Structure formats: structure tokens, C-alpha cells
Amino acid sequence: MNLHALRLFHVVATAGSVTRASELLNISQPAITAQIKKFEKEQSIALLQPSGRGIELTNAGRQMAMLAKRLFAMEQQIEQFCEECRSGANGHIRIAATYLPAQFLIPAWIAKFKQRYEQVEMTITTTNSGDALKLLLNMEVEVAVYGGRSEEHSDAIRSEQLFQDELWFVVAPGHRYANARVSLHDMMKEPFVMREEGSSTRERLLALCRTYNASMPRIALQFNGLHEAITAVVAGYGANFVSSLVVREYVQRGELCRVFVEGISLQNTIAIWTRRNEPLSAAAANLVQLIRDES
């Protein structure tokens, strides 16, 4: 089917005359008429008929005009969709994130992003750092957001550090070490409330003790969720070793207090991982830029 001729017919039908269509398209009237007549002959259908000094649509022409209107409206939608994809206003972003950024950073980032790009779909997988790397290398996600100790990774991965947050020892306000300075040796005598084995902060604490030849911490309570562990300490039991991002507001409200352990200052790296030498989609590039601006 000759879509160019159908488009000419569509303009004639919408404008109401060949003369008006000629003015709109900047194409001569004889050229328009010839194209439509050729289209009618190819399709064995009459679309226009004389009416006084002008023309009018036949019954088949009126039905064809309705179908052409739908077709070219859909064409406009497709063009708009393509433009939105090019600009990043449409698409689907798949993200992997470790627990810390997934729980305490990404929700605010995503809320701001969706306010600007409401049509972009997003899938977020919360996992550990090793699995986040696998998902990225296997092309199952476009972006990974990592929080923890800097790790070695494949040369195929590009790592961009956003910022660093501190790791704090915290206790309830009524604890004898609240806001005090103590040695690591004394701190390790306290019962700890921690997440499950394999959590990044728990591993950092164990590594800290090995580095300074201190006793291993006594994990008196263990939870699979960080919120539950923090709540137990707020309630007055034990100590925790945790990202300042997680407990800063608790400390500001006076629900928790820091313990300043002499000679110890550790930080977490918050970073974005992407595949090296591979361009991001426009939507993912917009998200990464927003995260940079917010960090």
C-alpha cells in the first residue's frame, strides 16, 4: 500500500478540499489529485467524487478517512514514544543494590526521578555485593549501587564513588559508654546486636578485631533485618556497629548515642557500578546523573 498517497488523501479529507491540502503540504493540486487517483486505481476503490465545484468523500472514502486518521495518530504516538526513549523520558531501568543504599538512599532518589520521568519503569533488586556484580556482568541490570568496603571487581566494571559514610558504634542513652571514649578492647566486652552472618558491617567489625588483635565481639542477638537490630539497641540492650546513614537520625533525636572507640575510624564507600565501555540507556543515564547531583 502506498502510504504517501494515503497520507495525501488523509490531509484532503481533513482539510475538506484539494486546494486547502495543497496549501498545507506545499504540493501542487494536480500532483495531489494524480497520487490519489493512482491510489484509488491500485486499491480498486473510489474515495473522492465531484460535488459542485469541489469534491466530497464517497461512503468508502469516509470509512477510509476514519481508518487513516487512526493510523496517522498512531504514527504520531510512535514518534513521540521514540523521542521519549531517546531523551530518557521512557524506558525500563533495572537496578541491583546492596542493602544499605537500597534501604536508605535509593527510595529518595527514585522518588525524585519519578517526579521528572513518570513513564520510566524501574525494577530494583536488593542483594549482596557479589550477586550485584554478577547481575551487572550478566547484563541482567544496567546499574548497581553498592555500599560497603571497597572491593576488587572485574576490569569490565566501572566504579564511580559517590561519597563515603562513617561506621559508628552506638548504644542506648542509658548505657555506661554513651558518648564516652573507650578502647576497642573494652568495647568488645559488650554484647552486640548485629545482622546475620555475611552482612557487610558484621564482617567489617570482625576484620577490625583481627587487625587490632582484639577479642572477637560477642554477638548476643542476631537479626536478619537491620531495623530489628537497631530497635533492640534503642530498647536498651547491647551495642551495634553500623553505618551512620542508618542511625544518624536516632542519634540526633537522642534515642541512641555514639561510643568513640580510640584510634578507630572506618568508612563505607557508596558507589555506582556500570559496565565499562558500554553506554547507558538515556533513562539510566538520567538516573545516574540525578544520583550524582543528590550525593
Rank of each mutant, 00 (worst) to 15 (best):
S199P: 03
A21S: 11
A13R: 12
L48C: 03
C85P: 10
I36C: 05
A108I: 02
A60P: 05
A21K: 09
G130Y: 11
E190R: 15
D165E: 12
A282E: 03
I106T: 09
A144G: 01
H185A: 14
Q103H: 12
E42W: 01
V247K: 15
R248W: 00
T98C: 02
E152Y: 11
Q35M: 05
L256G: 03
Y237E: 06
A284F: 03
R181Y: 09
I291N: 07
T123G: 01
A46Q: 15
V12T: 02
F241S: 04
G88H: 07
A97V: 10
M194A: 05
T19I: 02
M74S: 13
I157V: 15
E142W: 02
S215Y: 10
V170C: 08
N268T: 14
A132V: 00
R202H: 08
A65S: 11
Q49Y: 08
T231C: 05
L226Y: 06
A207E: 05
A102E: 01
S44L: 07
L184H: 07
V18C: 09
M139F: 09
A284Q: 07
S150R: 15
A108D: 10
L280G: 00
A207S: 10
H175A: 08
E118S: 04
E56D: 04
A34K: 15
D131S: 11
L266R: 13
V247T: 13
V171D: 07
G61I: 06
G263R: 06
L133K: 14
S244R: 15
I36F: 02
T33W: 15
A178N: 01
I93G: 00
I36V: 03
E151S: 05
V171W: 03
W168F: 06
E142S: 04
F260M: 02
V193H: 11
C257Y: 07
T231A: 10
L105F: 01
V120T: 05
V182S: 02
G174P: 09
Q115T: 14
S44N: 12
S22V: 00
L25N: 00
V261E: 00
I106W: 07
A284M: 06
V234T: 15
W168I: 09
R210D: 13
A108H: 03
N2Q: 05
N59E: 15
E203M: 08
L71R: 15
C257K: 14
Y117G: 05
A96Q: 10
L8Q: 10
L137C: 11
A232Q: 14
V259K: 12
T14N: 12
E152V: 14
K189V: 01
L226E: 13
F39Y: 13
E278D: 04
R248C: 01
T269V: 08
A73T: 12
H153V: 10
A180H: 09
R7G: 06
A144Q: 05
E228P: 02
V143H: 00
A271G: 04
V145D: 00
E140N: 13
G263I: 00
A5R: 14
A144M: 01
P217T: 13
A15P: 12
L280W: 02
